[in-house]
Computed example of a mutant assay.
Amino acid sequence: MRKVIILGSTGSIGTQALDVIRANRERFEVVGLIAGTDRETLDAQAAEFGVEHTGLGVAAAEEMIRDVEADVVLNGITGSIGLGPTLAALRAGRTLALANKESLIVGGDLVNDLAAPGQIVPVDSEHSAIAQALRGGAAHEVRRLVLTASGGPFRGRSRESLAGVTPAEALAHPTWDMGLMVTTNSSTLVNKGLEVIEAHLLFGVPYDRIDVAVHPQSIVHSMVEFIDGSTLAQASPPDMRLPISLGLDWPNRVAGVGAPLDWTTAQTWTFEPLDNAAFPAVELAKTVGRAGLSYPAVYNAANEQAVLAFHAGALDYLGIIDTVRAVVEKHEAEDTLTLESLAEAERWARATADALIAG
């Protein structure tokens, strides 16, 4: 039986993880729960699963990881504040089921240098798909990674047509039910840009061998192309419980967590190239990823400020990526990466983004 700590237990990832565990009590034991601010829901979860150790906030998460014995830490926190718990889980020798992509992207080599081989198990559906497909060949046989993107609510639209997008329109994702930040990032393709950086850091594949294909049906979650021309794709209906279950018990599969595809009915899957002119966030992410150091942290922090400004009515939709690009171009990274330099770079990025938005 695997003992599990869930960070972000009241959010989308956390509640779906508890769905998996609820149906597999003989396989998993929840030993710790951390929420952001929702103490009422947290207490209800603790009562249902018999959890003694609970807490609110990042500081409580790091303390729990240090003091409570666990096999797996599921980091479902949103945003770069998840970096501290990610580092704490790695230092404690726990398997890290990572749904908090920002902590890997922002932490970069700080995270990878701490992680033992196989210690980080990706929970993002795209990276879980790649991890599954990579089991079909050796590392030296991989030619290319292909991350799929639904295209969001604005697939097929030109850059010019996006000028008047409203916050409500940006939140109308056709496939996934996510929070304000992640849903908006999916509409701008910033989320896919972050996933490209995450794929590079997780799997060690160079940026020029990581592509994005638009796949509106969201059935093929990502693909691995091998040197012999073969491509392995992981396909399943869009349901995060499947990659979450793999994160909790990698590399073992948990029966019944998701419904399989129905091969008795006609289906059509389509794939389209990404329009980088309308959605430049992915190419910008590759640029900051190659630059490394604190540039990915600046990209992420500037974007978070711009998204919040957009939803507050202080910035138009196209201004989100324009602001991120302007902040990245102004940034001068220190030569070495430390927690202190990352924190300072994020503070600078947020302040600079705010100043640009204020005009």
Rank of each mutant, 00 (worst) to 15 (best):
V212A: 09
R157W: 00
P280F: 11
E52T: 15
D109E: 10
P237T: 14
E160M: 04
A88G: 03
A46G: 07
I130W: 08
V288A: 08
R27D: 07
G32S: 13
A326F: 02
E48M: 03
A297I: 05
S218F: 03
V224C: 12
V212G: 05
G76N: 05
R135I: 05
G108D: 07
I65D: 09
V20L: 10
S128I: 00
D249T: 03
S187V: 09
G151I: 05
A97W: 00
G193R: 13
V182S: 05
A168N: 02
L248Q: 08
I244L: 12
A172L: 11
S9R: 01
K286C: 10
W176Q: 12
T95F: 00
R91G: 07
A99P: 15
A266S: 14
E48A: 11
A266T: 15
L145M: 08
D177L: 04
L318S: 01
P296N: 01
P237D: 14
L201N: 08
R209A: 13
R39I: 15
I227E: 14
I65Y: 07
L145Y: 03
L315V: 08
G289Y: 00
G359H: 07
A149V: 06
L87N: 09
Q234V: 09
M1E: 09
V20M: 13
A266Y: 03
N300L: 03
D67A: 15
D113E: 12
M64T: 11
R159V: 05
A23S: 08
Q119A: 14
N24S: 09
Q217G: 08
G55K: 14
R91I: 14
E340P: 04
V20A: 13
G229A: 03
F203Q: 14
G107Y: 01
V31I: 14
W263I: 15
H311Q: 04
D249Q: 06
L110M: 06
V146K: 00
I197P: 15
D43E: 13
I77F: 00
S161E: 12
N75T: 02
E52M: 06
V4Y: 00
R25T: 06
A351M: 10
I130V: 15
D354C: 01
I357A: 05
S222W: 03
V146W: 00
H140P: 07
